[in-house]
């Protein structure tokens, strides 16, 4: 859809029209922030990281070759940025935060539904938080960023079969943690 245009825009940035990066920011700041949020569960950190990723895309714009999609390049840089930060990707979200978050999300439900759904969501949050980094990463990319296995394979630089296996194990791990989590 946007892919051709994305690459064209990024090539313009590469050629020196730096203002065009603003267009890419408009398109991708939210998805990128979403990805970083799932990888850190920290709002401010994620915002900081979004800036860093866009800064790196400006700084290393020469390395963009347009042989792949712009978004894949962006996510690869985002992954490297997370690594560079020396942050363990797994950062525990504080439990009161999880509660607040679930509370807010389940605001519009009837009382009975409310309680049940709230518990279920809370359990899911806790389970996702406990998920190993690589499993959370593959689930985030496929479920929340809605990327295809073939695209994820490019971003993670592994085979499509490996993505398939990893996604399967991730779901198994998530389910097993979810079922064990006290609610």
């Amino acid at each position: 859809m946007n892919s051709l245009a994305d690459n064209t825009i990024m090539l313009k940035v590469k050629a020196g029209d730096l203002d065009k990066m603003g267009l890419l920011f408009e398109r991708y700041n939210r998805p990128l922030y979403g990805f970083l949020f799932h990888m850190t569960y920290q709002r401010e950190t994620s915002e900081d990281l979004v800036q860093q990723v866009f800064y790196k895309m400006l700084k290393y714009r020469e390395t963009f070759t347009a042989t792949g999609e712009f978004v894949h390049w962006m996510y690869s840089i985002a992954r490297n940025t997370l690594k560079d930060q020396g942050k363990s990707l797994k950062q525990r979200v504080k439990h009161e935060n999880t509660d607040d978050h679930a509370e807010r999300l389940s605001g519009g439900l009837t009382p009975e539904e409310h309680l049940e759904k709230k518990q279920a969501k809370l359990g899911l949050y806790k389970a996702m938080e406990k998920l190993s980094d690589s499993h959370r990463e593959v689930l985030t990319l496929s479920k929340f960023q809605e990327l295809k296995y073939q695209e994820i394979a490019q971003i993670l630089d592994i085979s499509e079969i490996a993505v398939k296996t990893r996604a399967h194990r991730a779901m198994l791990e998530l389910k097993s943690i979810y079922e064990k989590t006290e609610r």
Binding site: M21, F37, R43, L139, M171
Partner: peptide
């Protein structure tokens, strides 16, 4: 069931600073 429940996971809104910070960073860079 779990997969569907994941649809309801929401990411909190980023603050308005994110946009402003990007503009500042871009201008500084330029």
């Amino acid at each position: 069931q779990l997969w569907v429940l994941m649809d309801e996971v929401e990411v909190p809104e980023p603050s308005a600073n994110m946009q402003a910070d990007f503009r500042t960073m871009l201008n500084d860079y330029k």
